[in-house]
């Protein structure tokens, strides 16, 4: 069982951590260097965690659990106008990032209003490429209830946030509803406000656990981090992508940030030690995000084997 953790520490000798993780059979998902500090998102076999902990203690670094690592969460606001941004949306997105998730902020084109709120096919399928979505709504019960049409057709679990208390039974299409957020014109700074952000992270964690439990019934042919490692090794151009995270992981696949037309064959041809190619165990198709490549790993029931 791989455990998601986050390492924060000095740049000096941090490559020892990376080497150790690779030797233990773990994966480095993301590396962020900010001046003399480095943040690593790591998947490590849980039985080897003490070894990593002692190494990090020696380097005077910090190791915390990052429950959302290796997942991608969409933070959706009705539009990108000043009414919804920056305060609530950025606070939530930033807080999810601190817990290890890759967070994308999505502003709908016409998500505002009670009767005029709408979402189009492109927005829906873009949100469906994520592992979970957080919808940020306002302060009035009636408005939140009427905005249900925005997330009714979304296949991934949706955590809805808003101001007032609303019984879960009134929102059948939401995975969970987190109250006390709503529309505010200042940043979250009080303890109660930070507490609400924790509740959102917990709700997203539960949503992802539900997806994981569903996937465990029909496991993927191979794990996304393993595919990521293989793509990184065999399609070296991906390291030259201008994105801060050239390969974004999902629970059921990954997104390779290279142009689809020029690199789809290279990605399909990525080979594993077991003798199979990526094209045989996964679908490789264009992502709705820019012209990236979306890889979805097929479950064991379709390929007939797991490695």
């Amino acid at each position: 069982m791989l455990e998601p953790v986050m390492f924060t520490g000095g740049l000096y000798k941090h490559d020892l951590v990376i080497e150790l993780v690779e030797d233990l059979g773990g994966y480095v998902l993301q590396k962020n260097v900010t001046q003399s500090e480095v943040i690593l998102l790591i998947l490590i076999p849980s039985e080897d965690k003490p070894v990593l902990e002692s190494q990090i203690k020696e380097l005077r670094g910090e190791l915390v659990r990052a429950p959302l690592a290796g997942t991608e969460v969409a933070v959706v606001t009705p539009t990108l106008a000043i009414h919804h941004l920056p305060h609530t949306a950025c606070d939530i997105a930033e807080y999810l990032r601190r817990h290890g998730s890759k967070t994308n902020m999505i502003g709908l084109a016409r998500g505002v209003g009670q009767e005029i709120a709408q979402i189009n096919e492109y927005e829906t399928s873009l949100i469906n490429e994520h592992d979970a979505a957080v919808f940020i709504f306002g302060n009035f019960k009636e408005c939140i209830r009427r905005k249900e049409s925005l997330y009714r057709n979304i296949n991934v679990p949706v955590v809805v946030t808003g101001g007032p208390e609303i019984a879960k039974a009134e929102m059948p299409y939401a995975f969970e509803y987190v109250s006390s957020v709503g529309r505010v014109a200042h940043r979250a700074r009080k303890a109660t406000e930070i507490g609400v952000l924790d509740r959102i992270v917990d709700a997203v964690g539960r949503a992802l656990d539900k997806t994981r439990a569903e996937m465990a019934k029909d496991p993927l042919t191979t794990s996304p981090p393993r595919v990521m490692d293989a793509v990184r090794e065999q399609v070296p151009d991906v390291e030259f992508s201008y994105s801060p995270l050239p390969i974004a992981l999902n629970l059921n696949g990954l997104r390779v940030k290279l142009p689809y037309d020029s690199y789809k064959d290279a990605v399909r041809a990525v080979a594993f030690d077991e003798g199979v190619k990526l094209g045989e165990i996964a679908t490789v198709r264009p992502s709705r995000m820019k012209d990236y490549i979306l890889v979805r790993i097929l479950p064991a029931s379709e390929t007939g084997f797991v490695f």
Partner: peptide
């Protein structure tokens, strides 16, 4: 003044207007 059962919205809009 807010119509309906929207006490929370009433309180929040007060804060919001003050902030802005």
């Amino acid at each position: 003044e807010v119509t309906g059962q929207e006490d929370f919205g009433k309180k929040k809009y007060r804060e919001l207007i003050m902030d802005i």
